[in-house]
Amino acid sequence: MTSIVPKEQSSESKKELSTEEHEDFRLFGLIAFLIADGMTFAGFFAAYLTFKAVNPLGPDAIYELELPLPTLNTVLLLVSSFTFHRAGKFLEKNEAKQCQKWLLITGALGLAFLISQMFEYFTLPFGLTDNLYASTFYALTGFHGLHVTLGSIMIMIIWWQTRIPSGRVNNENKFPFEAVELYWHFVDGIWVVLFIILYLL
């Protein structure tokens, strides 16, 4: 009978890490989640593109999009990605005040995006149930807006947590900051795709 003990018990591998420690893979988990989230958007995009390809709108259906506002929105989000990055630089240098300032700007940009998006909703000539494209438009931008809302709230939480001296996010414990930043860049990237597909195509 084969013995219970594995044939080759290697001993060389104990050098770097003991079994009780491991890398921090929380960011890895987040990336996996964002891939999943991205697939939801991909599904929506696919649906929209198929609708466009095979279901032409009736002659009386209204589906007109203006460019200025969404272009502004794109700029807002792109800038906010940059400001978030700035905040991160300051966190690394342990300059909490500066970091908080840039976070606040990022949050404000997010908020501005949402307000401008709302404004667009109210000025559009079509409503949710008017026609197929209209519905898809609202579903897509609404789902994205939900992400921005969530992100803005998390930015505010991070902003609160980076304060000195009692905040919990600092140079040693950067994970929450990095997570929100990654998420924010992701939401940003989705917007760019969305902008191209919905407004430019």
Binding site: A32, I35, A36, D37, G38, M39, T40, F41, A42, G43, F44, A47, L128, T129, N131, L132, S135, T136, A139, F143
Partner: peptide, 24 residues
């Protein structure tokens, strides 16, 4: 991870069709 979210999105659209009378 790659496919379940698509189902989620689809079912959300379907529920809009049922509840909000959209026409996807």
């Amino acid at each position: 991870v790659l496919s379940t979210p698509v189902l989620a999105g689809t079912l959300i659209l379907l529920s809009f069709d049922i509840v909000a009378h959209t026409g996807f």
